[in-house]
Design a protein around this nucleic acid. Sequence first.
DNA 1: GATGAATGAGAGTTCATTCAT
DNA 2: AATGAATGAACTCTCATTCAT
Lengths: 232, 232, 232, 232
Amino acid sequence: MLKPTETSVFEMTEQPSQPRALDRQRRILDAALAVFSRRGYREASVDEIAEEAETSKGGVYFHFPAKQMIFRALLDVSAKRLLERVEAAIERETRPVAKADAALLTVLDAFADHRALARLFMIEALGAGGEFQERLLQIHSDFIAVIKLHLDTALAEGVIHDVDTDIASRAWFGALNEVILHWLIKGTPARLEDAYTALRPLLMRSVGIEAPAAAPPRGRLANGQAGDRAGH
Amino acid sequence: MLKPTETSVFEMTEQPSQPRALDRQRRILDAALAVFSRRGYREASVDEIAEEAETSKGGVYFHFPAKQMIFRALLDVSAKRLLERVEAAIERETRPVAKADAALLTVLDAFADHRALARLFMIEALGAGGEFQERLLQIHSDFIAVIKLHLDTALAEGVIHDVDTDIASRAWFGALNEVILHWLIKGTPARLEDAYTALRPLLMRSVGIEAPAAAPPRGRLANGQAGDRAGH
Amino acid sequence: MLKPTETSVFEMTEQPSQPRALDRQRRILDAALAVFSRRGYREASVDEIAEEAETSKGGVYFHFPAKQMIFRALLDVSAKRLLERVEAAIERETRPVAKADAALLTVLDAFADHRALARLFMIEALGAGGEFQERLLQIHSDFIAVIKLHLDTALAEGVIHDVDTDIASRAWFGALNEVILHWLIKGTPARLEDAYTALRPLLMRSVGIEAPAAAPPRGRLANGQAGDRAGH
Amino acid sequence: MLKPTETSVFEMTEQPSQPRALDRQRRILDAALAVFSRRGYREASVDEIAEEAETSKGGVYFHFPAKQMIFRALLDVSAKRLLERVEAAIERETRPVAKADAALLTVLDAFADHRALARLFMIEALGAGGEFQERLLQIHSDFIAVIKLHLDTALAEGVIHDVDTDIASRAWFGALNEVILHWLIKGTPARLEDAYTALRPLLMRSVGIEAPAAAPPRGRLANGQAGDRAGH
DNA sequence: GATGAATGAGAGTTCATTCAT
DNA sequence: AATGAATGAACTCTCATTCAT
């Protein structure tokens, strides 16, 4: 989630020697996110990105050697950022299932706040050619690994039983994905967060946890309490 | 599933006046499926499709007025065919949950047999531009509606309880999707069917059904028995 | 001018062995005139001509070996027809200046009645490539020759004096052309015939004939009296 | 008329930021004029224009967004230039009829010097599709308006009588056009200027002015004396 | 005679990338 | 650092023409 003072999602990519260069890189990545997200990877032209970044085509090529590289940087930086956010959320939880739960919720919150980012991950990365498909799937796997890690812990701690955590983590992620994709393209539910309210008990049950009758209301600033909702 | 004697998945799209024309349409759609699947929608050139179909560019345009229309026809015909297959499988089951289960399994079997088709639905339709994204999501929704229908019946019959069938059907579909996507791009598991063996109990549990300890082995010809595996 | 019972402007082109063939040729030429006139020579497709002629592309090519040939036939037949009409009108006059005058008026009447024909001669024949430009100019020259012939007679008879009939006939024709072109493209005057009422005294003066103060009103059926209007 | 040191008829179309760009625009317009003139609008390919301009297809498209726009720019710039030349010539005359006369002569001189330009205005603009037909007719009307303006003055000053200046100016223009067209396509008379020597007395007479028995010889640099030739 | 499927050359246009300034 | 002019390969689509049926 962007703080009001942030103007960009991207703060560092490589090793920009000068602050001005860093600024430009950020501006270009922001512009690229916007353009890729509304046009798609192939329809997006470098010219359009340059215009959106208020620079010139040559300017873009000074900072990125190819269009592909812009997309790759976008994907990498965003994924890293997202994963960091997920891990921060996880640390705020104590019980393993709550940690896995928080991971999903964080992804969902991030996408709800940043529709463009959501399009990037859910749609455009698949349409950008084979190279990026692999990369996207790796990102999927990274997130799934985080979930799995905590499901494994839950299993070890005896909180859940008889669960193939490999498939469970993947299934959880997939279920979430479908819900987000639907929201992205069809626009329902209006508030993506609402979907998770319905989805969570289902996921819990799938690993044998009966969710509490009613989940407490949750605001965006109340992430820290997420663990309370996933009691077993 | 294609019978060994079939060479094409496509048998009719429109109403060509000559039998030769019908043949060409089939050949073009087959070629397009192959090319779109290996190149992606945007990278695929009409020339390449023509070559693969052993015809000329003009020949392709005689049958389809635009590249988009080839893709659209491919998507529509394939979805129709897949849905028919799903409904046939469903009819062979009696218990509602088994019917929903059979739906998923049929999709999975179809994709396992037709990797190109799987790419079309899982990847290329998302990367082909906004028009097709909507169309794809509609296809998703069609399948999800089938699942939901039977979950609703199960709910009415008291087989399952306290389930938001709307989200459950979507979640099931999404979970399956992720598994298929992973198989498509990363190649694991080698046999897509194996993934479902692990996935099914999870899905069942998610609606409150405890799967039997061990699912009976299943061959492709044993679809009719699928219902036996989804006891409640 | 087409009689109400005529459905086509074209009655014979070459030597059609069978009446059915003749019919088809007529239909195709009519269709071609319509299509060339609304689309222009290059934009007109043989497909569109075939459709307008209610036949098939192959059908058109059976009767005409190339698109060019359709246009050429159209131009030749129409010019011949027009020239015949002009000569008929001339014969109805006795005084040479009246004959020249009748020639112009006939052309103008023909175009007023057949806007498509007018487009063909005034516009499309110029846009159809060098071959047709030469052909069109030859047609111009043919008409101009007719006018010149009668101006020469008028000169010999002493009706007009000190006139370069070569340039005068060309100038008359050009003046008429500009008026027709304006009417064709800009749509004014609404009745093309009105333009000639104003133009005629000017042309007469240009060869030294002072037109009568007021030209008598003229209807389309009153062509035979044209001579009365060009007194000297 | 081009001064010998000028290599291009086009000096400015829009506002290119770099001098190099302005140069290229000129080169492209020059090349386009040459190619359109020898091939016709539709037969001319952008590739050929690029080659003639010694640049690449992409280079052409950098400066002009479509083939149509090249043609439109060509037409607009040339018409503007021509009209300016006409108005300069008019200013050098004092008597109104001489002014009108000078207008025609200037057009004729310009075309005599620039056969390609003549083709553009007389032929290609009519064959380039409906859009340009309207534009060309507007250009015609602009020139005709200039002629009419001075004929009106002549009328007001009592130099000419009983003339419908609207039709007279159009007729003059049309007569000139036909002469130019003939020269363009058939090649006679060899010197276009000779045609005007014969045409002028005719036009004068058409508005009731008896031309002097013999027009004084006229060289291109003697335009300023044109007024002497148009006795009242 | 007629149909419509098929061909293939060629069009206009786009755009990632390069590079002189 | 940055600009924008230039390049050229590639693309989608059109259409006159041919020909098997």
